[in-house]
């Protein structure tokens, strides 16, 4: 536990490598989280984010020493000074190839997070928690017609 002696950054924030005479730039973990969430949702075949238990265990892991963490709605991120790690819980549409889908999600998340935040994404872990069937929508729609 040699890392515990290092100064911890303010919870929920990460300092970008950019620290020049002109000033420092700090990016909150929630920014990384939103970018990752949006990038995941953009992929056709991803029905929703969330619904898993992997987030509960996320807090126990610390892949980046002194990293800030943020966690909501199926997207957990760990953000350090130069790197970020992302955990996603996704619900996929029935019929999509999960392997191909996961690969596409991973590629899009890495691309977006690196482009927008300038952080290097070291890993994107994807947990597929459920498959969404088209019938599930139809079941919930016809309400109100039973009693007039």
């Amino acid at each position: 536990m040699a890392q515990s002696t290092a100064a911890k950054p303010e919870v929920g924030t990460a300092r970008l490598a950019e620290d020049t005479e002109q000033g420092r730039t700090t990016i909150a973990s929630s920014v990384v989280q939103k970018v990752a969430g949006i990038a995941a949702r953009e992929i056709s075949g991803v029905h929703a984010l969330g619904g898993g238990v992997s987030r509960a265990f996320g807090a126990l892991r610390e892949r980046i020493p002194g990293a800030g963490t943020a966690d909501t709605a199926g997207v957990a991120v760990e953000v350090g000074e130069k790197q970020a790690a992302v955990d996603l819980d996704i619900v996929v549409e029935y019929g999509a190839s999960i392997v191909d889908l996961a690969r596409a999600v991973r590629r899009n998340v890495i691309g977006s997070v690196e482009r927008i935040t300038g952080l290097e994404v070291i890993e994107v872990n994807i947990a597929v928690n459920d498959i969404h069937l088209p019938e599930e929508d139809e079941e919930t729609e016809p309400t109100g017609s039973r009693v007039e």
């Binding site: 000033g23 730039t25 700090t26 909150a28 929630s30 920014v31 939103k34």
Partner: peptide, 15 residues
């Protein structure tokens, strides 16, 4: 003077 910028959050139109 040096300007420190904190990006606290993002807002997306579709959110």
């Amino acid at each position: 003077a040096p300007v420190d910028v904190v990006v606290a959050d993002l807002e997306w139109e579709s959110w």
